[in-house]
Simulated assay, not measured.
Amino acid sequence: MPELYKTKAEFFRMLGHPIRIRVLELLQDGPTPVRDLLAALDIEPSSLSQQLAVLRRSGIVTATRQGSTVMYALAGGDVADLLRAARRILTELLSDQGVLLAELRATSEQAGHGP
């Protein structure tokens, strides 16, 4: 198998965790301090730290320190485009599954993004 396909598969595996997906959605609104991510996710700080480390290592998010606050941001706009495309694809695929579609729409509205 060509290395390109292995690299692409690794990229999608990196995205394959619900907390990481939610963090990326939250970061679409701009740089966000860790305390705000923790409040939005309602998870243990150690769990968030672990997931942020995976995203940082992949290069998909950046971290900067502002005083005692660590701010996280998307490394580029392409990630937001990918998340919007995934949302559109899922909306279409789930159109027959009302409960999941309602949940998808609700999380999109909470994040301040359209379907």
Rank of each mutant, 00 (worst) to 15 (best):
Q110G: 15
R56P: 14
Q97M: 09
R22V: 06
L82M: 11
L37N: 00
G114W: 15
L15M: 03
L4M: 09
G98Y: 15
G76N: 14
L90E: 11
R20K: 07
R20Y: 07
T64Y: 07
E10L: 14
Q110V: 13
F12W: 08
Q66N: 13
M14S: 02
S58C: 09
A63K: 03
Q97C: 10
A39D: 05
A102H: 09
T62Y: 12
T91P: 06
L24W: 01
A80E: 04
A39P: 01
D78T: 08
S47H: 05
M71Y: 04
R87G: 03
T69K: 13
I43L: 12
T69S: 14
L52P: 08
E25I: 12
R22I: 04
L101R: 02
R22W: 05
P18G: 00
T7W: 15
D42H: 01
G30L: 01
L82R: 04
I19V: 13
I21V: 07
A75Q: 08
E92L: 08
L15A: 02
A80T: 06
G30R: 01
S47L: 10
P33Y: 04
E92Y: 10
T64I: 08
D29S: 14
P31D: 04
I89S: 11
H113M: 15
I60N: 01
T7L: 13
M14R: 04
G59Y: 11
V23Y: 00
T64A: 09
L90V: 10
A85M: 07
P31V: 04
G76P: 03
T7C: 12
P18N: 01
A63M: 05
A106Q: 04
D81C: 12
G112C: 10
K8Q: 14
Q51V: 02
A111D: 06
L26D: 01
L94I: 11
F11L: 05
K6N: 15
H17D: 05
Q97H: 14
R84G: 02
S108W: 13
K6Q: 15
V61T: 00
L52A: 10
L101E: 02
D78K: 14
H17G: 03
Q97V: 13
D29L: 05
A106T: 00
L90K: 06
L15Q: 02
I60F: 08
S47K: 10
G98P: 10
R13C: 07
A80Q: 03
A39E: 08
H17L: 02
A39W: 09
L48V: 05
